[in-house]
């Protein structure tokens, strides 16, 4: 694996995030969905675009789990994706980009490769 350096982008304050849900983060032209999985005490970030019908909607979806895998369901047609790998869990041949997240001093950062 080639090591790439991550650029940590400050997305929002912890209290701006929605507990057990998502918010949409703007970074230039890009839209990133940020999920605060309070129940598991985990943070996830993915692309906001659902690849199924190309809708900017994943941040408005519902999170949950399939077995141990944390997932997000798109509000449009309930396609689900793993929050860890981005793999589509409802059997479709599409997947989403995922990004690392870290929290420091009450700020939430999303790691992006540039």
């Amino acid at each position: 694996m080639i090591e790439t350096t991550l650029n940590w982008f400050a997305a929002c304050r912890v209290e701006d995030a929605v507990e057990n849900g998502g918010v949409c983060v703007k970074r230039g032209e890009e839209q990133i969905a940020l999920f605060y999985f309070t129940r598991r005490n985990e943070w996830y970030a993915t692309q906001n675009l659902c690849p199924h019908r190309k809708q900017m909607a994943l941040s408005r979806g519902m999170i949950g789990s399939a077995g141990d895998v944390p997932k997000i369901a798109c509000p449009f047609h309930k396609k689900t994706f793993s929050l860890e790998t981005g793999e589509c869990l409802s059997g479709d041949e599409c997947s989403i980009q995922t990004y690392p997240v870290k929290v420091e001093n009450g700020l939430v950062y999303i790691g992006l490769e540039d």
Partner: peptide
């Protein structure tokens, strides 16, 4: 577990 789009609504 942690719920899902079926049981939550």
């Amino acid at each position: 577990g942690d719920g899902c789009e079926v049981c939550k609504p």
